[in-house]
Protein backbone atom coordinates (compact mmCIF):
# COMPACT_ATOMS: atom_id res chain seq x y z
CA UNK A 1 0.00 0.00 0.00
CA UNK A 2 1.31 3.44 -0.86
CA UNK A 3 1.44 5.39 2.34
CA UNK A 4 1.72 8.73 0.61
CA UNK A 5 -1.33 8.31 -1.50
CA UNK A 6 -3.53 11.17 -0.35
CA UNK A 7 -6.56 10.81 -2.58
CA UNK A 8 -7.98 7.37 -3.25
CA UNK A 9 -8.79 5.04 -0.39
CA UNK A 10 -8.25 1.37 -1.08
CA UNK A 11 -11.06 -1.13 -0.47
CA UNK A 12 -9.36 -2.12 2.77
CA UNK A 13 -9.13 1.47 3.93
CA UNK A 14 -12.74 2.14 3.07
CA UNK A 15 -13.73 -0.95 5.01
CA UNK A 16 -11.61 0.19 7.95
CA UNK A 17 -13.26 3.58 7.87
CA UNK A 18 -16.76 2.07 7.88
CA UNK A 19 -15.85 -0.24 10.71
CA UNK A 20 -14.22 2.53 12.67
CA UNK A 21 -17.31 4.72 12.47
CA UNK A 22 -19.82 1.88 12.91
CA UNK A 23 -21.23 3.18 16.20
CA UNK A 24 -21.60 6.73 14.92
CA UNK A 25 -23.31 6.18 11.57
CA UNK A 26 -26.50 8.10 10.84
CA UNK A 27 -29.38 6.23 9.28
CA UNK A 28 -28.47 7.48 5.82
CA UNK A 29 -24.81 6.60 6.32
CA UNK A 30 -25.78 3.16 7.56
CA UNK A 31 -27.83 2.59 4.42
CA UNK A 32 -24.82 3.68 2.36
CA UNK A 33 -22.64 1.28 4.34
CA UNK A 34 -25.03 -1.62 3.68
CA UNK A 35 -25.07 -0.79 -0.01
CA UNK A 36 -21.29 -0.70 -0.08
CA UNK A 37 -21.12 -4.03 1.72
CA UNK A 38 -23.48 -5.69 -0.72
CA UNK A 39 -21.83 -4.15 -3.76
CA UNK A 40 -19.21 -6.89 -3.99
CA UNK A 41 -18.07 -10.08 -2.32
CA UNK A 42 -14.65 -8.47 -2.02
CA UNK A 43 -16.07 -5.66 0.13
CA UNK A 44 -17.84 -8.13 2.40
CA UNK A 45 -14.75 -10.32 2.75
CA UNK A 46 -12.38 -7.45 3.50
CA UNK A 47 -14.81 -5.95 6.01
CA UNK A 48 -15.32 -9.24 7.80
CA UNK A 49 -11.56 -9.77 8.08
CA UNK A 50 -10.99 -6.32 9.51
CA UNK A 51 -13.82 -6.77 11.97
CA UNK A 52 -12.36 -10.06 13.14
CA UNK A 53 -8.99 -8.40 13.67
CA UNK A 54 -10.31 -5.40 15.53
CA UNK A 55 -12.48 -7.51 17.81
CA UNK A 56 -9.55 -9.69 18.80
CA UNK A 57 -8.81 -9.55 22.51
CA UNK A 58 -5.19 -10.43 21.65
CA UNK A 59 -4.95 -7.05 19.91
CA UNK A 60 -6.20 -5.35 23.07
CA UNK A 61 -3.56 -7.16 25.10
CA UNK A 62 -0.89 -6.19 22.60
CA UNK A 63 -1.98 -2.54 22.79
CA UNK A 64 -1.73 -2.64 26.55
CA UNK A 65 1.72 -4.23 26.42
CA UNK A 66 3.01 -1.69 23.91
CA UNK A 67 1.42 1.16 25.83
CA UNK A 68 3.09 0.27 29.14
CA UNK A 69 6.58 -0.92 28.32
CA UNK A 70 7.73 -0.44 31.95
CA UNK A 71 7.68 -3.57 34.10
CA UNK A 72 4.83 -3.44 36.59
CA UNK A 73 5.20 -2.45 40.27
CA UNK A 74 6.68 -4.60 43.09
CA UNK A 75 4.93 -7.88 43.79
CA UNK A 76 2.36 -7.50 46.55
CA UNK A 77 3.25 -10.81 48.12
CA UNK A 78 6.57 -9.40 49.36
CA UNK A 79 4.91 -6.50 51.15
CA UNK A 80 2.39 -8.61 52.96
CA UNK A 81 5.07 -11.11 53.99
CA UNK A 82 7.11 -8.29 55.49
CA UNK A 83 4.04 -6.90 57.27
CA UNK A 84 3.26 -10.27 58.73
CA UNK A 85 6.56 -10.04 60.61
CA UNK A 86 5.26 -6.95 62.39
CA UNK A 87 2.03 -8.54 63.42
CA UNK A 88 1.88 -10.57 66.63
CA UNK A 89 1.40 -14.31 66.67
CA UNK A 90 -2.17 -13.94 67.92
CA UNK A 91 -3.12 -12.05 64.82
CA UNK A 92 -1.40 -14.63 62.65
CA UNK A 93 -3.42 -17.36 64.30
CA UNK A 94 -6.60 -15.35 63.84
CA UNK A 95 -5.69 -14.95 60.20
CA UNK A 96 -5.11 -18.67 59.91
CA UNK A 97 -8.51 -19.36 61.44
CA UNK A 98 -10.12 -16.92 59.06
CA UNK A 99 -8.46 -18.60 56.13
CA UNK A 100 -9.77 -21.92 57.37
CA UNK A 101 -13.24 -20.51 57.75
CA UNK A 102 -13.13 -19.11 54.28
CA UNK A 103 -11.92 -22.40 52.93
CA UNK A 104 -14.48 -24.44 54.80
CA UNK A 105 -17.45 -22.26 53.90
CA UNK A 106 -19.33 -23.78 50.97
CA UNK A 107 -19.37 -21.74 47.80
CA UNK A 108 -22.98 -22.01 46.79
CA UNK A 109 -22.94 -18.72 44.90
CA UNK A 110 -23.10 -19.93 41.35
CA UNK A 111 -22.90 -17.56 38.38
CA UNK A 112 -26.31 -16.71 36.94
CA UNK A 113 -27.55 -19.24 34.46
CA UNK A 114 -29.80 -18.37 31.56
CA UNK A 115 -32.42 -20.61 30.04
CA UNK A 116 -34.32 -19.88 26.86
CA UNK A 117 -36.69 -21.50 24.40
CA UNK A 118 -37.40 -20.63 20.78
CA UNK A 119 -40.71 -20.11 19.02
CA UNK A 120 -43.04 -23.10 19.44
CA UNK A 121 -40.47 -24.84 21.69
CA UNK A 122 -40.93 -25.89 25.28
CA UNK A 123 -38.41 -27.29 27.69
CA UNK A 124 -37.95 -28.22 31.30
CA UNK A 125 -34.92 -28.37 33.55
CA UNK A 126 -34.09 -29.68 36.98
CA UNK A 127 -32.31 -26.95 38.93
CA UNK A 128 -29.49 -27.40 41.45
CA UNK A 129 -31.90 -27.59 44.43
CA UNK A 130 -34.14 -30.18 42.71
CA UNK A 131 -36.73 -27.57 41.81
CA UNK A 132 -38.17 -27.95 38.34
CA UNK A 133 -38.34 -25.20 35.79
CA UNK A 134 -40.73 -25.49 32.84
CA UNK A 135 -40.35 -22.90 30.11
CA UNK A 136 -43.09 -22.27 27.63
CA UNK A 137 -42.48 -21.20 24.01
CA UNK A 138 -40.30 -18.19 23.22
CA UNK A 139 -39.34 -17.53 26.84
CA UNK A 140 -36.19 -16.55 28.66
CA UNK A 141 -35.29 -16.69 32.34
CA UNK A 142 -32.14 -16.16 34.35
CA UNK A 143 -31.53 -18.19 37.51
CA UNK A 144 -29.24 -17.12 40.33
CA UNK A 145 -28.86 -19.14 43.51
CA UNK A 146 -27.40 -17.34 46.53
CA UNK A 147 -26.69 -18.78 50.00
CA UNK A 148 -29.86 -17.22 51.39
CA UNK A 149 -32.14 -16.90 48.39
CA UNK A 150 -33.05 -18.42 45.07
CA UNK A 151 -33.55 -15.56 42.63
CA UNK A 152 -35.05 -16.02 39.19
CA UNK A 153 -35.80 -13.32 36.72
CA UNK A 154 -38.30 -13.89 33.92
CA UNK A 155 -37.37 -11.70 30.97
CA UNK A 156 -39.81 -13.03 28.42
CA UNK A 157 -42.68 -15.48 28.05
CA UNK A 158 -43.98 -17.91 30.62
CA UNK A 159 -42.53 -20.27 33.20
CA UNK A 160 -43.90 -22.72 35.72
CA UNK A 161 -41.97 -23.63 38.85
CA UNK A 162 -42.18 -26.72 40.95
CA UNK A 163 -40.28 -25.51 43.98
CA UNK A 164 -38.30 -27.81 46.26
CA UNK A 165 -38.92 -26.89 49.90
CA UNK A 166 -36.13 -24.94 51.57
CA UNK A 167 -37.38 -22.50 54.23
CA UNK A 168 -33.94 -20.93 54.59
CA UNK A 169 -33.78 -20.04 50.94
CA UNK A 170 -36.99 -18.45 49.67
CA UNK A 171 -37.69 -18.83 45.98
CA UNK A 172 -38.22 -15.42 44.32
CA UNK A 173 -39.37 -14.90 40.75
CA UNK A 174 -38.97 -11.38 39.44
CA UNK A 175 -41.14 -10.36 36.48
CA UNK A 176 -41.15 -6.70 35.44
CA UNK A 177 -41.67 -4.86 38.75
CA UNK A 178 -43.43 -7.78 40.45
CA UNK A 179 -41.82 -10.31 42.80
CA UNK A 180 -43.49 -13.65 43.45
CA UNK A 181 -42.18 -15.60 46.45
CA UNK A 182 -42.73 -19.25 47.31
CA UNK A 183 -41.29 -21.69 49.78
CA UNK A 184 -42.46 -25.00 48.38
CA UNK A 185 -45.17 -24.88 45.80
CA UNK A 186 -46.21 -25.21 42.16
CA UNK A 187 -46.95 -21.95 40.42
CA UNK A 188 -46.65 -20.15 37.09
CA UNK A 189 -45.56 -16.66 36.08
CA UNK A 190 -46.55 -15.30 32.73
CA UNK A 191 -45.55 -12.11 30.89
CA UNK A 192 -48.23 -10.86 28.54
CA UNK A 193 -46.96 -7.62 27.05
CA UNK A 194 -46.69 -5.36 30.10
CA UNK A 195 -48.93 -7.49 32.30
CA UNK A 196 -47.71 -10.12 34.74
CA UNK A 197 -49.95 -13.12 35.42
CA UNK A 198 -49.53 -15.50 38.37
CA UNK A 199 -51.29 -18.85 38.84
CA UNK A 200 -50.95 -21.12 41.85
CA UNK A 201 -51.40 -24.83 41.20
CA UNK A 202 -50.36 -25.98 44.65
CA UNK A 203 -49.26 -24.33 47.91
CA UNK A 204 -49.01 -20.63 48.68
CA UNK A 205 -47.12 -17.71 47.16
CA UNK A 206 -46.86 -14.04 47.98
CA UNK A 207 -46.87 -11.45 45.23
CA UNK A 208 -45.16 -8.12 45.90
CA UNK A 209 -45.45 -5.08 43.68
CA UNK A 210 -42.74 -2.45 43.43
CA UNK A 211 -44.79 -0.08 45.64
CA UNK A 212 -44.66 -2.59 48.49
CA UNK A 213 -48.22 -3.85 48.24
CA UNK A 214 -48.32 -7.62 48.72
CA UNK A 215 -50.99 -10.26 48.25
CA UNK A 216 -51.09 -13.90 49.18
CA UNK A 217 -52.37 -16.44 46.66
CA UNK A 218 -53.34 -20.02 47.40
CA UNK A 219 -54.08 -23.05 45.26
CA UNK A 220 -56.46 -22.20 42.43
CA UNK A 221 -55.93 -18.42 42.60
CA UNK A 222 -54.90 -16.39 39.62
CA UNK A 223 -53.86 -12.75 39.63
CA UNK A 224 -53.04 -10.44 36.74
CA UNK A 225 -51.27 -7.13 37.33
CA UNK A 226 -51.51 -4.85 34.34
CA UNK A 227 -50.08 -1.31 34.43
CA UNK A 228 -52.98 -0.10 32.29
CA UNK A 229 -55.88 -2.37 33.20
CA UNK A 230 -55.03 -2.65 36.90
CA UNK A 231 -55.20 -5.78 39.04
CA UNK A 232 -57.59 -8.63 38.33
CA UNK A 233 -57.97 -11.77 40.38
CA UNK A 234 -60.04 -14.92 40.14
CA UNK A 235 -60.20 -18.66 40.59
CA UNK A 236 -59.28 -21.40 38.14
CA UNK A 237 -59.30 -25.16 38.18
CA UNK A 238 -55.76 -26.24 39.10
CA UNK A 239 -56.38 -29.46 37.19
CA UNK A 240 -55.97 -27.48 33.94
CA UNK A 241 -52.28 -27.33 34.83
CA UNK A 242 -51.47 -29.64 31.97
CA UNK A 243 -53.04 -27.28 29.45
CA UNK A 244 -50.10 -25.08 28.68
CA UNK A 245 -47.97 -28.14 28.11
CA UNK A 246 -50.35 -29.19 25.34
CA UNK A 247 -50.43 -25.92 23.38
CA UNK A 248 -54.00 -25.18 24.42
CA UNK A 249 -55.01 -21.85 25.86
CA UNK A 250 -58.03 -21.81 28.15
CA UNK A 251 -59.32 -18.23 28.03
CA UNK A 252 -62.02 -17.07 30.36
CA UNK A 253 -62.93 -13.48 29.50
CA UNK A 254 -59.27 -12.88 28.73
CA UNK A 255 -58.27 -9.53 27.20
CA UNK A 256 -57.60 -9.94 23.47
CA UNK A 257 -54.17 -8.38 23.94
CA UNK A 258 -53.13 -11.26 26.25
CA UNK A 259 -54.33 -13.89 23.81
CA UNK A 260 -52.39 -12.16 21.04
CA UNK A 261 -49.28 -11.96 23.25
CA UNK A 262 -49.52 -15.72 23.81
CA UNK A 263 -50.04 -16.47 20.12
CA UNK A 264 -46.99 -14.39 19.28
CA UNK A 265 -44.82 -16.91 21.13
CA UNK A 266 -45.82 -19.41 18.47
CA UNK A 267 -45.61 -17.50 15.21
CA UNK A 268 -42.85 -15.89 13.21
CA UNK A 269 -45.41 -13.44 11.79
CA UNK A 270 -46.27 -11.25 14.78
CA UNK A 271 -49.89 -10.30 15.31
CA UNK A 272 -50.56 -6.64 16.05
CA UNK A 273 -53.79 -5.11 17.35
CA UNK A 274 -53.89 -1.92 15.33
CA UNK A 275 -57.40 -0.75 16.15
CA UNK A 276 -57.81 1.24 19.37
CA UNK A 277 -61.47 0.24 19.54
CA UNK A 278 -60.26 -3.31 20.34
CA UNK A 279 -58.42 -2.25 23.51
CA UNK A 280 -61.19 -3.48 25.79
CA UNK A 281 -62.10 -6.62 23.84
CA UNK A 282 -62.20 -9.87 25.82
CA UNK A 283 -62.56 -13.41 24.60
CA UNK A 284 -63.44 -16.80 26.05
CA UNK A 285 -62.78 -20.22 24.62
CA UNK A 286 -60.24 -22.91 24.10
CA UNK A 287 -57.59 -22.15 21.53
CA UNK A 288 -54.83 -24.19 20.02
CA UNK A 289 -51.77 -21.96 20.14
CA UNK A 290 -49.61 -24.06 17.85
CA UNK A 291 -52.07 -23.68 15.01
CA UNK A 292 -51.79 -19.92 14.86
CA UNK A 293 -53.63 -19.43 11.59
CA UNK A 294 -56.67 -21.46 12.58
CA UNK A 295 -56.81 -19.80 16.01
CA UNK A 296 -56.55 -16.38 14.45
CA UNK A 297 -59.41 -17.21 12.04
CA UNK A 298 -61.49 -18.41 14.97
CA UNK A 299 -60.84 -15.31 17.05
CA UNK A 300 -61.50 -13.08 14.05
CA UNK A 301 -64.82 -14.82 13.47
CA UNK A 302 -65.89 -14.57 17.12
CA UNK A 303 -64.97 -10.89 17.54
CA UNK A 304 -65.75 -9.90 13.96
CA UNK A 305 -62.19 -8.82 13.16
CA UNK A 306 -60.37 -8.33 9.94
CA UNK A 307 -56.83 -9.71 9.85
CA UNK A 308 -54.63 -8.04 7.24
CA UNK A 309 -51.15 -9.34 6.35
CA UNK A 310 -48.54 -6.69 5.63
CA UNK A 311 -44.75 -6.64 5.93
CA UNK A 312 -44.49 -9.96 7.78
CA UNK A 313 -47.09 -8.93 10.33
CA UNK A 314 -50.77 -9.53 10.81
CA UNK A 315 -52.77 -6.44 11.73
CA UNK A 316 -56.10 -6.86 13.50
CA UNK A 317 -58.83 -4.29 13.02
CA UNK A 318 -62.55 -4.35 13.73
CA UNK A 319 -64.56 -5.37 10.68
CA UNK A 320 -66.34 -2.48 9.05
CA UNK A 321 -68.85 -3.24 6.33
Amino acid sequence: MNDNDEDELTVQELAADWLERQQELSEAEFAAFCAWLRASQEHARVYANLRKTMLDSALLDACEAVNKPMPVAPPRRMISARRLGWIGTGLAIAAAIMVMLVMRAPAPVAPPQDFATGLRQRADWKLADNSHLFLNADSRISVRYLPDARNLSLARGEAIFEVAKDPRRPFHVMARSVTVTAVGTLFGVDLMNDAVGVRVYHGVVTVAKADGETRTLTKGDWLTLDPRLGAHAGRFDPAVYQNWRTDWLEADKMPLSYVVAKLNHYTGTPIVISDPSLAGAVISGRFQLSNTDATLRLIAAVLNLQPARRDHRVYLTAHRS
Partner: peptide
Protein backbone atom coordinates in the same frame (compact mmCIF):
# COMPACT_ATOMS: atom_id res chain seq x y z
CA UNK B 1 -25.26 -4.02 11.55
CA UNK B 2 -22.13 -6.09 11.58
CA UNK B 3 -23.67 -9.20 10.16
CA UNK B 4 -24.90 -7.82 6.90
CA UNK B 5 -22.38 -10.03 5.19
CA UNK B 6 -22.88 -13.70 5.83
CA UNK B 7 -19.66 -14.67 4.16
CA UNK B 8 -17.94 -17.56 5.91
CA UNK B 9 -14.47 -16.71 7.17
CA UNK B 10 -11.61 -19.11 7.46
CA UNK B 11 -11.75 -20.67 10.90
CA UNK B 12 -8.02 -21.21 11.16
CA UNK B 13 -6.94 -19.23 14.16
CA UNK B 14 -3.58 -19.05 15.87
CA UNK B 15 -3.33 -19.39 19.62
CA UNK B 16 -4.07 -16.26 21.64
CA UNK B 17 -0.43 -15.83 22.73
CA UNK B 18 0.85 -16.16 19.18
CA UNK B 19 -1.66 -13.61 17.96
CA UNK B 20 -0.73 -11.21 20.71
CA UNK B 21 2.95 -11.47 19.71
CA UNK B 22 2.12 -10.79 16.06
CA UNK B 23 0.00 -7.78 16.96
CA UNK B 24 2.72 -6.49 19.23
CA UNK B 25 5.28 -6.75 16.48
CA UNK B 26 2.92 -5.06 14.03
CA UNK B 27 2.19 -2.26 16.49
Amino acid sequence: SDFESELPLADEVLEHKQREAIFRQAL
